[in-house]
Structures are given as structure tokens and as C-alpha cells.
Nucleic acid binder design. Structure first.
Lengths: 342, 342
DNA sequence: CTGAAAGCGCTTACAG
DNA sequence: CTGAAAGCGCTTACAG
């Protein structure tokens, strides 16, 4: 009835209740092998009966380490990052490590605010997909002894470990797929090059094009990577048509927008123009035509990053994990010419 | 070079550096109006120069309150919950309140583990979408003085505040839409009734059916609510056919699976069978046919819940916010007969 | 195997 | 307006 906020029960309460010292209570939690079986039983029973839950702040303050992990993503509402978080969560919760979440929305100020908030919680480690190209705040935390693992991005200076994706490889495989199908004039609807992986994907596409004859890539750099931005890209794509016969996109959302815009303009996919996305989002196989795309496994990235963070050794061998995205061929690409090599 | 984990700078370091007391440092952070302008300046400058960041554990331990908010969702990887988290995050980050995230995956044990982890962090409050129908752990936390706001669910006993969605209303509007279009034999592919809102939606569908003549609802209760489960439901739906002319689903993912299964079986949507989803997921407008569905705004739920949690008063008036989902009519429902009322 | 004591870094009355 | 002191709830050597 009353909103009596009863005082929380502490380790002293437990100790008093059964006539042992506070140290013994602490030991049965943290070093049970030091405590006699009978004593341990009594402590455990009392903790259960009184509803004891350890005060994490006191523990962290005293021991100097906490078990919470900070995760900084670009956008919590984006399903890819949701998958990454879920992957992290699955390994962290096994070890009973709480997760602190921040979303930078690609704003460096928001990012550094989130990181310094992690810092003041003295997190055990940070998993971060940084926006700030300089990685300054992360390097500082690392220098101060906090473990850091970069997500979906490598450290150019090679000091911070990372779990990233070979974006250039993924984008190149999309480009090769389309070139293989006989396309020669290709548009690439990309996000801003200030986003590291957009730049990598651009490089991948260009590499693939350079490795083939007569291929030309027309890159269109958009501000965002939403379906709306994809629709906005369509007039520019059509300005390039009819020469352009294939459109590559930096993600499935852009591809969705391009598809919608193309259909609205009476352009048929893949009959008139072929289309390739990136992400293999949940809907990619469901739209019509089914979208050819490139898959990267967000949960796996999250799991590997969390394991890397929690590994005792963090040896340099495993320190730069690189996932290879794979092409998922579906119905949105049309073969233009017979294979050149029979 | 060296992995020297330099000791973190503390408020004592700041105090010593400029010859003031620790209390003055603390005051310039927490009660700046008590500190002379000149002193304040010196403290601030020193903090900046030395790279001071407050130790949250010490602060929480001493003051007895922390600012971190625990958020417990059913599944971080589900876009709806991603939206909710984003909404929470947007108001929490304004107030510089860190977010602790837990994902129960609808398992009561995982849920109570996450909650007790929140508990030991002495969170300022908890936003939770509980799986445990008894709400026991949440009531305990509430009794102990922790603020609790239920997400997407009401407290039957009326003591815990909540921000929920009128699921019955949403489901009823989907059913009415289809009845209005002339359908009389309706399948409802639902999740488990142990999930509170699945039960509510079931009630809403039945209510709508009861309000019309000759309408029969065949509910199919699945274990999960993924696209895979939706595909698995198709044989059972077809067992009901050809009588059934419309299929309602508890979410868009199920609808997606049903759609896929139906197409694979050569059933045309909406020509042979009409289909309605729930959520208005990002892909709903993009699939073919565009999915008629019911929209609930996850970000708004998150924002309202966070505001409710942080409100100083938490008066009883605003304490049970209820969002009304709205029907989004698109192409997946076919009108069977002319309107009955001209 | 158990206990007494110190101390982590803050905030908060309380004096002055 | 500023400082000295206590204390939040733990963990951790250290004695015994």
C-alpha cells in the first residue's frame, strides 16, 4: 500500500542475520571455494530469504572493474544494427554482462557524449561503430585501459581490434555479377563517402569495373540511405539512361526506393533495368521482383566482436576479424548477353 | 606505446591541481550556483585539461540514485522494438541518461536475469515489456522504490503505469475492414495467447466478428511470429479453404510468410485470398501486393514511456497512456461484394 | 576457514 | 563562498 521505499538489503544485513562477517558474505559470492560448505549454505539461504541483490556500484567502485559493456551503433532502429546488438547480447548475457547502448545517429557529438557516458560508468569494454573518422575518443579510452573493439570498421593505424566486413569485396561481387550478366553501363547509388564503408564499397565497385572491358560506372552519391533517398536518386539514374542498364545500391533500402521510383516512372525491373541491393534485409526476398543483393550477417558480427572483447588474451592474430559478405542472386538482374566464355 | 593503464583522474586530482577542496570540485559539477564564478572557471578548466570524467559508480553509491534507465524488450532484433528503443533513446539522451538494454526473447528466466541485473545497477527506472504474466519481479522493484513503466502492456491490477497500445482496437479494425469488404469466413493467424497482446488481438477480432452477421473466425495459434511460422501456417489455412477468403495475421512477418506460402501453393493474393498484416513494417508498402496492415508507432511509444518515467510527478492521470493503432489500407484486400449500405 | 579494517571516488550536511 | 569529515556498500589483503 504505502510507497515505502524499503531500504535495500546489503551484505551487512546478511552477515548480521546469520552471525558471520561481511567478508564471508562477499567470499561466498566471489570466491566460494574459500568458504566452508555449511557456512556457504547459510549465507545463500539468507540472501535468498532476504532478497539480497549485490550493489553493482559499490562493487565496481571497490574492485575497479565493472562487467558492463558499452555498445555504440549508428542507429538502433536500423535492423542491421538490431541484429548486431542481438549478437552481442547473446554472448554478453551468457556471461551475465549488462549492455549499455548508445546510438550516434552518425553525429560525432552524440557519439562522443555516448562514449563519455560509457566512460563514466567505467565499462569493461566498448564495442563501437564510430562516426568520427579520427577515432579520437576511442583511442583515449583504449589508452586508459578500456578494451575497445571496432564494429564494421577497421583502425587504419592498426592498433584497435575490429570485427568488420569486407565491404569492398561485397560491392565488387555485386558489380562482377552484373558485369558477368553482360551489363556495361552501371549506376551505383551510394551514400556519402564520409561514411567509411560507403567509400569502401565505391572502391570495390570501381575495382571490379576496372577488371573488365568497356565497363563504365556512374556513381551517384546521396546524402542518406533511406528508401526516400532512393526515390530521389531515380531522376538522376534516368538522366543516365538509356545507356545505364544496371543499378547497384549501397543498401536494400536505397534499392527499394529506386525500385519504387523506377516502377512509378514506368521502367520495368529487370526487363529494362537490373537492380542489386546490399544487406539482404528481411524483405529482400519478398518484394517483386525478388531482390538480388549482398548478405552480411549482423548477429555474427555482434557475436564475434563480443567474444573478442571478452577474450582473456586478445592476441593479435584474431584481432582483426573480417567477414566476407556473399552475393545472393535472385530475380532483379537480367542477363543481357550470352556468356563470353563458353 | 606501452599499455600503461594510467590511473583515471579523480576529483581529488582536480582539487589538488588548483588548490581547492574536493567538495568545491563536486559543487561546481552538481551545484554550480554555490561556487564563485572565478573558482568555477578554474575548476572547469582543470577538469578539461586533465581529462576528468566523473566516476558514475562512486556517484551512484554515494547519492543512492543513478541516472541510468533499464529497458527490457522482447527482442532487440525486431524492428518494432528497435523503434521503441530509439524513441526511448531520443528522450533519455537529451537528459544524458544512459540506457541499459535487455532482451528477454520471451523467456521468463532471461527476463528475470535482466531485471535483477538492472536492479544491481540501481537503475533510476525500468521500462519493460514483460513476458512473465505475474509481473512479480517488476512489482518487487516498484515496491523497493524503482520507477517502472510497462511497455505495450497494462497492469491488470492498475498499480504500474504503462504506455500501451490498444491491441484489441487495432485487431478489430483489421477485422472490420475485411468484413466491410464482404468477407465472411476469416482465418486469424495469431501468436501464442500467452503473449498478452496476442490474446488482446484475438479478443478484438472476435468482437468485430460478433458485431457482424454470418461471420466466422478461424483462429490458428502459432508458436512464434516469424515469417517461417507464417509459412508453416499455410497448410492449416488451406485446410480451411476454399471457405476462407481472408487471412488476418498478428504481425507483418507472419503475413509475409503466409503470402510466400500462398504464392508457392499457387494461391493468388488478393484475387483468391485477401491478406492483412499488423505493424506496418518498413517493407509492408514495398511487397507485392502492397500489404494492408495496422500501424503502431514504436518510437512514439518509446518516447512517451521515457517521458512518463522521467516525469517528476508521475500523476495518476497520465499514467496509463494508450495508443490507438490505425488501419493502413493497401492492395492485399479484395472487395467481394458491393457495400450493403448504399 | 573466518573476521577486522581499510579504502575505492564521490556527495552531502555541517562549520566557518 | 569554501573546506573537513563522514559514509554509501562493497572487496581485498592481512591476521589469526
Amino acid at each position: 500500500m504505502s510507497r515505502s521505499r524499503e531500504r535495500r538489503v546489503t551484505s551487512v544485513d546478511i552477515a548480521r542475520a546469520i552471525g558471520v562477517s561481511q567478508a564471508t558474505v562477499s567470499n561466498t559470492i566471489n570466491r566460494p571455494e574459500l568458504v566452508a560448505e555449511a557456512t556457504r549454505e547459510r549465507v545463500l539461504t539468507a540472501m535468498d530469504r532476504l532478497g539480497y541483490v549485490v550493489n553493482g556500484s559499490a562493487r565496481t567502485l571497490r574492485s575497479g572493474v565493472s562487467s558492463t559493456i558499452g555498445v555504440l551503433v549508428l542507429d538502433v532502429a536500423n535492423p542491421f544494427w538490431g541484429d548486431v546488438i542481438k549478437g552481442v547480447e547473446s554472448v554478453a548475457s551468457e556471461a551475465a554482462f549488462p549492455l549499455l547502448i548508445g546510438s550516434s545517429n552518425e553525429d560525432p557529438d552524440t557519439e562522443s557524449a555516448a562514449l563519455s557516458s560509457f566512460d563514466s560508468q567505467t565499462v569493461r569494454g566498448v564495442l563501437a561503430a564510430p562516426t568520427d573518422p579520427g577515432l579520437r575518443p576511442l583511442r583515449q579510452m583504449h589508452a586508459r585501459g578500456t578494451r575497445v573493439v571496432l564494429l564494421d570498421r577497421e583502425d587504419p593505424e592498426g592498433v584497435l581490434p575490429s570485427v568488420s566486413v569486407d565491404h569492398a569485396h561485397g560491392a565488387a561481387s555485386a558489380a562482377r555479377h552484373v558485369i558477368e550478366a553482360g551489363h556495361r553501363e552501371i549506376a551505383f547509388v551510394n551514400g556519402s563517402h564520409r561514411v567509411a564503408w560507403c567509400a569502401s564499397r565505391s572502391a570495390g565497385v570501381r575495382d571490379a569495373a576496372a577488371g573488365a572491358d568497356d565497363v563504365r560506372v556512374h556513381e551517384i552519391e546521396m546524402r542518406g540511405m533511406s528508401a526516400e533517398e532512393g526515390m530521389r536518386a531515380v531522376p538522376r539514374v534516368r538522366g543516365l539512361a538509356p545507356r545505364v542498364t544496371a543499378v547497384l545500391c549501397a543498401n536494400d533500402m536505397l534499392a527499394l526506393g529506386v525500385l519504387k521510383g523506377l516502377i512509378a516512372a514506368g521502367v520495368r525491373v529487370p526487363d529494362d533495368v537490373s537492380l542489386v541491393g546490399y544487406d539482404d534485409s528481411i524483405f529482400a526476398s519478398m518484394i517483386s521482383p525478388a531482390l538480388t543483393t549482398v548478405r552480411q550477417d549482423g548477429q555474427e558480427i555482434g557475436r564475434r566482436a563480443a567474444r573478442l572483447l571478452l577474450a582473456d588474451d586478445q592476441g593479435r592474430e584474431t584481432t582483426r576479424a573480417l567477414q566476407r559478405p556473399e552475393l545472393v542472386a535472385r530475380g532483379s538482374v537480367r542477363r543481357l548477353s550470352p556468356r563470353r566464355n563458353p
